[in-house]
Design a protein around this nucleic acid. Structure first.
Lengths: 338, 338
DNA sequence: TTGTACGCGTTATCAC
DNA sequence: GTGATAACGCGTACAA
């Protein structure tokens, strides 16, 4: 057992007394090999602790059995959760995941995509649709199958596995208006290069219009994805007159930050101020009052994205995209204004 | 622009009017190429949108510029956060990350490790030290450099980048005792195959002993990593007599679950019941009262793990491990018993 | 400084 | 059912 280098197909072949071709077939086309030889070969494989070399395999087969994913950051629970499901589903199909993050920066995203493509990925998961043409051009030129998740842009070319952010935001806003709120504010995520965030703002605006409320009745501030940003944004909104009676937030983290700050300021939630979230992460049930929010099926989305990519790999001609449903979850943080 | 296949080194060489060797050198040993040729080559690279093929590169150089990581699950915020930092630091060094998850199952972990190793990773990040000898044997045999994070087992062979879970748990328990609590309970994470969880239990026990309190004074239940499990465990603990006046939790998620349940039962926290956490994730500041917990530098740990692996790759002979410090964060959920 | 030529571990196309 | 053998894209002696 003094091997200093990993065993190769050749070593296995020699040990089993067959050709390398046969050993290879044992892995890739097992039924084209007699049961007896297969058994001999597998014994040798065991004994040597042989594992196929990825590089050689990719080179010869022009397939890597690898899918890539570039997400904004793993620190955001919704992406972590989706990525986990994505990876699990891929794993069941014998595919490994290479992951990278863009830090919400389109230029960095392209750079990461370039790296992954160089690695020979068979498919790619991206988040949202907001990126420069250059990125799409690169993907097309290299013929890399990709799906975009967390969004669903009907007019946009490409394959989406996501939901209608605008519509979901409309639904939650309608509910707020229906309860009687007229002075409404929004704490949005950073909308620059982020179609999920900007679609949600659009949705809120659309619902306001629909109800005959004007832009003057809606104040929007943007905030980074953190509890503290939510707190700061909430404070900023409460310093203007007339006070909003409801704050619609672009995600749960901002909403929880806002609730915390409001309570610190002596406001009762939802008595003095209603707050809504978006995503329905675990945090939504940990805060008091529990958060009224829009449930997004993050895990199902990750699974669907994986299945879409696998379908394309297996020759699916048209886009196997999926429009997922979100669901308004009424909890304690939204009520009629006093 | 009708390429149906990715451009190769050969294509670039032809376009630039040089040999493939020169193009290759432009990437790997730029100073061995004249500035003029290099420029011509790079122009061709740009024009063709060339990216080196990973497989070929790995095959020829016997290096993959890839590091692997097998973590229990990305859905746990602490691992997501650490992995994010790990990946960022690796990225700065031009290394890509292949990630997999074990679902807290040692057998599945080994399987994932096998896959990653087959891909030709240059190093591996693992969580904790609790795994079968078979796994370690495999790693040794294949000469894969690896570091273990989130733990620090002084007596254990191998390279750790982590902290002393037992000691940290002792510190928080001492504080609880010092405040006057005598009836103490613990909601631990599942300790099976998890040295972080079991070390924390040991630490609590050790601090009890040290204070002359017996095992009889400590009730321990284990719970899965979720708010609901924390709630259920809390209920179970409160059904026995004498009631604990303080519950020490193995992580923040369990602690928040416990607080939520206690409040539902009409108990005041910390008036009737004190609760402590472990990890200091964002959730800890979102709950009311804010959680007294043990801060763990997850991001720094991910960075340190990456640096350790890079150091080994660059020939470091002894283990560049790191013992990180944790810090007790006093917030509102722990106080003297009534 | 640059080019030639070989080998890395695997799969695929042939014959047999 | 099995065995030669030619790719696959790249790095790197070695030669020029």
């Amino acid at each position: 057992m003094n091997r200093t280098t990993a065993p190769t197909l050749h070593d296995v072949a020699r040990m089993a007394g067959v050709s390398t071709a046969t050993v290879s077939r044992c892995f890739n086309l097992p039924d084209r090999v007699s049961a007896k030889t297969r058994e001999t070969v597998m014994r040798a494989v065991e004994e040597l602790g042989y594992t196929p070399h990825f590089g050689g395999r990719a080179l010869a087969s022009n397939r890597s059995n690898t899918m890539g994913a570039v997400i904004p950051t793993m620190e955001n629970a919704i992406f972590a959760r989706g990525l986990q499901a994505f990876q699990e589903t891929l794993g069941e199909a014998g595919i490994t995941l290479v992951a990278a993050s863009s830090g919400y920066d389109p230029a960095h995203e392209l750079e990461q995509i370039r790296t992954l493509v160089g690695r020979g990925i068979d498919g790619l998961l991206l988040i949202g649709a907001a990126r420069p043409d250059e990125t799409y051009a690169f993907l097309e030129r290299r013929r890399i199958p990709y799906v975009m998740a967390w969004s669903y842009q009907a007019g946009h070319a490409g394959c989406f596995v996501g939901f209608d952010n605008r519509r979901a935001a409309m639904i939650i806003t309608r509910k707020v208006i229906e309860l009687g709120h007229r002075h409404i504010a929004m704490i949005a995520g950073i909308t620059n290069n982020n179609d999920r965030a900007s679609d949600r703002v659009d949705g809120v605006r659309a619902a306001m219009d629909e109800a005959g409320l004007t832009g003057r009745d809606l104040r929007v501030v943007e905030a980074r994805y953190s509890l503290n940003s939510g707190r700061r944004a909430c404070l900023e909104l409460l310093e203007t007159k007339p006070h909003p009676t409801a704050i619609i937030c672009g995600n749960d983290v901002l909403a929880v930050g806002a609730i915390t700050k409001a309570k610190e300021l002596g406001l009762r939630v939802p008595g003095d101020l209603s707050v809504t979230g978006f995503d329905d992460i675990e945090l939504a049930r940990a805060v008091e009052p529990k958060l009224t929010t829009m449930h997004v099926p993050h895990r199902r989305m990750g699974q669907a994205a994986a299945r879409a990519l696998l379908a394309i790999r297996d020759g699916a001609t048209d886009c196997p995209g999926t429009l997922l449903k979100t669901q308004l979850i009424m909890r304690g943080s939204l009520a009629a204004p006093a």
